[in-house]
């Protein structure tokens, strides 16, 4: 075999299906409107002008390689959590790095290690708004979790807990979703102990509950569950 030839080992490609969608969003003008809107450099120097606004979709499918970190994502499909370790200084990485970033190691190549599925929350937030791909999942908890004795913290969502109870220092267990596609969202964290939430005032708890309810109602309205 030619050593420069690329050989497909597993093929779960959906490219043909998405190619149709990408062709539809081909960056040509699809529609337009004409509006009257303000013009001017200062709020006290404004005039009105007519503007024509065209609608120009732009769709694309990237065929993205995870490079030498591919093993981590294959591991997700297998239900295993892999990190890397520098043989020179011993630093452990999750997210993994192919080369050690310790300046004294001069980019020493790391080795793969299987990581435990226990960790601790370094910090977190409760998301009440997000970007397009995650709107239907609101509200959710985004956390940075130190897994095992990794030096770094992994971004991950925390589930199976009231968002208001999440706190820094909470011990968590990393779980794998049933259906896995090699996406970081294949894993999530759940509490591994009874939470000890930070002392929040009654007002703060009421505020958060009220706000999260508004978000849930908004999501149910715009992304009804089947």
């Amino acid at each position: 075999m030619d050593e420069f030839e690329e050989k497909i080992i597993v093929d779960k490609s959906v490219l043909n299906e998405w190619k149709k969608w990408a062709r539809k969003g081909d960056m040509r003008v699809k529609g337009y409107k004409i509006v009257e809107a303000p013009r001017g450099d200062r709020v006290d120097r404004i005039s009105r002008e007519r503007f024509m606004i065209v609608e120009r979709p732009h769709a694309v499918v990237y065929q993205h390689s995870f490079g030498l970190l591919s093993r981590f994502y294959e591991g997700l499909i297998e239900g295993k959590l892999y990190g890397t370790r520098c043989p020179k200084c011993g630093l452990k990485y999750l997210p993994p790095r192919t080369h050690c970033w310790n300046p004294s190691c001069k980019l020493e190549e790391t080795e793969w290690i299987e990581m435990p599925t226990e960790g601790v929350i370094v910090t977190y937030t409760i998301m009440a708004f997000s970007a397009t791909p995650f709107l239907p999942e609101l509200p959710f908890v985004l956390a940075y979790v130190k897994v095992g004795d990794a030096a770094t913290a992994l971004p991950i969502q925390v589930k199976e807990i009231d968002p208001i109870d999440v706190h820094i220092g909470l011990k968590v267990k990393i779980k794998f979703k049933e259906e896995r596609v090699g996406d970081l969202m294949d894993i999530y964290a759940v509490p591994a102990e009874k939470p000890h939430p930070p002392p929040r005032s009654k007002e703060e708890i009421e505020w958060l509950k009220r706000e999260l309810k508004i978000v849930e109602e908004w999501v149910n309205k715009h992304f009804p569950k089947k």
Binding site: L91, P95, W101, P103, S104, Y144, A151, A153, L154
Partner: peptide, 10 residues
């Protein structure tokens, strides 16, 4: 990545 800042020897 902000999460990496817990262990950045640089």
């Amino acid at each position: 990545r902000p999460g990496d800042r817990t262990g950045n020897p640089a």
